[in-house]
C-alpha cells in the first residue's frame, strides 16, 4: 500500500477506510485499493506506475494530465480515483501498439510537435478525443479543442500542424 501514496499523500492511517475499485485502463481491468481523497492522476502515476500522464499545474489549469474517461477528455487531477470505479479510461500509454506509433504520435514526430514534451501526453489525448468526434477538423477547430491544454515551449504552431497531419493520415487509413 505504501508505494501508492509515496510522493502523493501520507498513507492512510490505521482505520482510514479504503475502497476497492476496478477500472479498465487501456483495455485492461485493474483492481486497486484507494482512499477516497486520492486523485485519479495520482492513482495512475503512483498506483499503476503509468507515468505517461503528467501532473503539471496541480490546479486544474494546464491539461497535462488529460486522459480519456469513457472516451471523453478529462483532467485526471480534477477527478477522484474512486469515481473511476467501473469505468473505462485511456491514457497516453494506450496509444501505440507494440510495433507501431499511433498516427497522432507520428504526427507529433513528423511536425516537431514537442520540445520538452511535458504537455504532450495531454495534448495527444485531447487530440484523440477531437479526431474521434471530428475526423476532418479545420485549423481553428484544432486550436479550439486544444485551448484547455497549455504548452510553454512550442508556441502551439507545430502542435496544431501535428494534429492536422494525424487527421489526414487517419482519414487516409480509414478510406
Amino acid at each position: 500500500m505504501s508505494s501508492l501514496y509515496d510522493e502523493v499523500a501520507p498513507a492512510p492511517a490505521e482505520g482510514v477506510p479504503t475502497r476497492r475499485i476496478t477500472v479498465t485502463v487501456n483495455g485492461e481491468p485493474r483492481t486497486i485499493d484507494v482512499e477516497p481523497r486520492l486523485l485519479l492522476a495520482h492513482m495512475l502515476r503512483q498506483g499503476l506506475k503509468l507515468t505517461g500522464t503528467h501532473s503539471g499545474c496541480d490546479t486544474s489549469n494546464c491539461g497535462a494530465c488529460t486522459i480519456l474517461f469513457e472516451g471523453r477528455p478529462i483532467k485526471s487531477c480534477t477527478m477522484l480515483a474512486v469515481q473511476a470505479d467501473g469505468h473505462s479510461i485511456e491514457t497516453v500509454e494506450g496509444l501505440a501498439t507494440s510495433s507501431e506509433l499511433h498516427p497522432i504520435q507520428e504526427g507529433f514526430k513528423q511536425e516537431h510537435g514537442l520540445q520538452c514534451g511535458f504537455c504532450t501526453p495531454g495534448m495527444m489525448m485531447a487530440s484523440k478525443a477531437l479526431l474521434e468526434k471530428n475526423p476532418n477538423p479545420t485549423e481553428d477547430e484544432v486550436r479550439w479543442a486544444l485551448s484547455g491544454n497549455l504548452c510553454r515551449c512550442t508556441g502551439y504552431q507545430n502542435i496544431v500542424k501535428s494534429v492536422l497531419w494525424a487527421a489526414e493520415k487517419m482519414r487516409a487509413e480509414s478510406n
Partner: peptide, 9 residues
Amino acid sequence: VADPIVRTR
C-alpha cells in the same frame, strides 16, 4: 465556459 476539457465533466 471554462475550457473544452473542463466542459466534458
